[in-house]
Simulated scan of single mutants.
Amino acid sequence: MNFLHNDLGHLSGGEVVEVNLSNAANVKLMDSSNFSNYRRGGRHEYFGGHVTRSPFRLEVPREGHWHVAVDLGGYAGSVRAGVRVLG
């Protein structure tokens, strides 16, 4: 599966992640364990989902190492994404 990846590093929890998309896509905020499963094509849990409006904002739920993956769910096409952590 093709996806864009942003390693957000260690976050305390409560920060807001802002994602700007060029077009609709799936946005998944995951901890390291779930991101590892996602990369292998396994079961994973995430925050987010199919996003049709940009910017999209998510709150980091707890302390840990976090990743954002952006994909098109297997559909053809491309997407550009900008990701930043807000205080």
Score class of each variant (00 low, 15 high):
21 L>C: 06
55 P>M: 07
29 L>F: 12
13 G>S: 11
45 E>S: 13
26 N>R: 03
75 Y>W: 12
65 H>F: 03
54 S>E: 04
72 L>T: 12
49 G>A: 10
7 D>G: 06
1 M>R: 08
25 A>R: 00
50 H>Y: 15
33 S>E: 11
64 G>K: 08
45 E>L: 11
27 V>C: 03
78 S>Y: 12
38 Y>V: 05
60 V>I: 13
29 L>I: 09
21 L>I: 08
31 D>A: 10
12 S>C: 04
1 M>C: 08
13 G>N: 14
31 D>E: 14
59 E>I: 01
70 V>F: 00
59 E>L: 00
39 R>H: 10
58 L>Q: 08
49 G>C: 05
1 M>Y: 06
9 G>F: 03
70 V>I: 15
67 H>V: 07
51 V>P: 09
41 G>A: 10
12 S>A: 12
28 K>S: 11
10 H>N: 09
23 N>S: 14
52 T>W: 02
83 V>Q: 03
75 Y>F: 10
20 N>R: 14
85 V>I: 15
43 R>D: 06
82 G>C: 04
53 R>E: 09
32 S>A: 14
31 D>Q: 11
2 N>H: 05
27 V>W: 06
18 E>L: 04
75 Y>P: 00
7 D>P: 03
40 R>A: 13
79 V>Y: 00
76 A>L: 13
73 G>A: 10
36 S>K: 14
45 E>G: 14
78 S>W: 11
83 V>S: 04
9 G>V: 04
47 F>N: 07
74 G>W: 07
15 E>P: 05
33 S>F: 08
48 G>R: 14
31 D>K: 12
20 N>F: 02
64 G>P: 02
12 S>W: 01
14 G>L: 07
77 G>D: 10
4 L>Q: 07
82 G>M: 04
47 F>D: 13
37 N>P: 03
43 R>M: 03
39 R>Y: 05
74 G>Y: 08
62 R>E: 08
79 V>N: 07
61 P>A: 11
